[in-house]
Design a protein around this nucleic acid. Structure first.
Length: 414
RNA sequence: GGACAGAUGGGUGAGUAGGCUGAAACCACAUCCCUGCUAAGGAUGCGUACGGGUAACCGUACCGAGGGUUCGAAUCCCUCUCUGUCCGCCA
């Protein structure tokens, strides 16, 4: 959630920053108005309560001393009604405020390039040169068929479309990648964590998936529980509603989890192959840091993810997302895109974001700084998306006869 | 899933015939003092959120969560959640 006090006090600056990502400022005007309204009603409510508390104490004294209490009683009864009606007003105002505020995305960082959509993203650098093929490189689903690695039909039979299963060497390669990523992340100082793959709605709200993106989540029927769309949710929320010691920071976490997404807005996109599935594996990094250090940790996380691809000898590029393409919670994001020779293009394989205090405010994650409690910064990034890495290996390591070589660094894992 | 018991501040733990308890005491922690020698003594401070004030500070809310009764609730009532124990089930 954005800082409403900041919005109120620096309205022009704030709206300026948010219009860059397509938020209209009548909505922000309304938000500011609701915020002020709530404060005003709340002030009156608190005054009425203070009166009630004060006079109620008197009431007790009077009765002990045997004084006449009828006058106090009528005063209190009247005031009680006032409190009830003010309370209703506060509840309504607060709900209206939350409805708007929880749907406002994060401020883009000053450094974020302006742009409408993904076409305006800025390539920062390329790492490794794509190999030259002396044959037509196949797409991964062709290779999957030749090698018997991916069974799309039966995945659909077991669940529904956009599910698949990996068989034999592919399944082992998937597991090898998970282990490889976790080991490398651990070497960088990330603590490995095993987390629940189902989280409650509070946690989803903490990291920003709810309330706005409910359509993209698998919900457990009859419960306030959801399959996680990314390990970012459980990892970040480990410290939900906690106050950490300054010395504990930064906290670096990594976890492997399957991720579940309805892909509601992706009809017709990547329907072939396993680029976009309802269930996919990912190894995630999450950092909780001092505000002053989040930039530095962000860079470390980008470098770590890029380095994993370099170790796998997979050509890739770093892309800085423009303001219009930023995710809801992110203040800045760098995507890493891996080269897919079969598709003849770069495809996203990792996304690293600094949300600054946006998630921390929602999830109430703070640290004690001297006498004050301050919101910390949260960051997250894939290191890496496992299924897409498998695809990248298939397409980059393919031979003319359709066989696939195994990357050197993975051999000890198989 | 069934039965019973419980849920209080960082921890232990008082407080249940409603008001003087935002909450005793102890421990932990912080600062200071004393004293020095392997360990101890003393003083003070020490929950969170929101609102107001430059600040000291003041107001409001919170004793698992939500609702109710009442002039007034940690204390009474209802619902839910969680924890423990027993039973059932299961990896």
């Amino acid at each position: 959630m954005i800082d409403l006090k900041y919005l109120e006090k620096n309205f022009d600056e704030a709206t300026n920053r948010l219009t860059k990502r397509g938020i209209n400022n009548t909505l922000l005007e309304e938000l500011k108005y609701k915020f002020r309204e709530l404060k005003e009603i709340n002030r009156r409510l608190e005054e009425a309560r203070a009166t009630q508390n004060r006079v109620s104490k008197l009431f007790g004294e009077y009765r002990r001393e045997g004084k006449d209490i009828s006058e106090l009683k009528s005063k209190l009864s009247k005031n009680k009604e006032l409190i009830a009606s003010l309370q209703d007003e506060v509840n309504i105002a607060n709900e209206e405020l939350q409805n708007i505020a929880l749907n406002i995305p994060n401020f883009p960082d000053e450094s974020v390039p302006y742009g409408e959509d993904e076409d305006d993203n800025v390539e920062i650098k390329r790492v490794l040169t794509p190999r030259e093929f002396n044959f037509r490189p196949r797409e991964h689903w062709e290779l999957a068929e030749i090698n018997g690695w991916i069974d799309f039909q039966r995945g659909v039979k077991l669940a529904k479309s956009r599910f698949s299963l990996l068989r034999g060497e592919a399944a082992r390669l998937e597991r090898a990648l998970i282990n490889f990523f976790l080991d490398e992340n651990r070497k960088r100082g990330f603590e490995e964590v095993y987390v629940p793959f189902i989280n409650n709605s509070n946690m989803l709200q903490g990291t920003g998936q709810l309330p706005k993106f409910a359509d993209d989540l698998f919900k457990i029927e009859g419960e306030e529980l959801y399959l996680i769309p990314t390990a970012e949710v459980p990892l970040t929320n480990i410290y939900n509603n906690e106050i950490l010691k300054k010395e504990q920071l930064p906290i670096l976490l990594t976890a492997y989890t399957p991720c579940f997404r309805k892909e509601a807005g992706s009809a017709g996109k990547d329907t072939r192959g396993m680029i976009r599935q309802h269930q996919f594996d990912k190894v995630e990094m999450v950092a909780l840091s001092l505000p002053e250090e989040s930039e530095e940790i962000f860079n470390m996380m980008v470098e770590n993810a890029s380095n994993l691809l370099t170790m796998l000898e997979l050509p890739h590029r770093l892309v800085e997302l423009c303001s219009g393409d930023l995710g809801f919670s992110a203040s800045m994001t760098i995507d890493i895109e891996v080269w897919l020779p079969g598709q003849n293009r770069y495809r996203e394989i990792s996304s690293i974001s600094n949300t600054r205090d946006f998630q921390a405010r929602r999830a109430k994650i703070r640290f004690r700084d001297g006498k004050k409690n301050r919101l910390l910064h949260t960051l997250n990034g894939s290191a890496l998306a496992v299924g897409r890495t498998l695809v990248a290996i298939m397409e980059n390591y393919q031979n003319a006869d359709g066989t696939i070589d195994i990357p050197e660094v993975l051999k000890k894992y198989i």
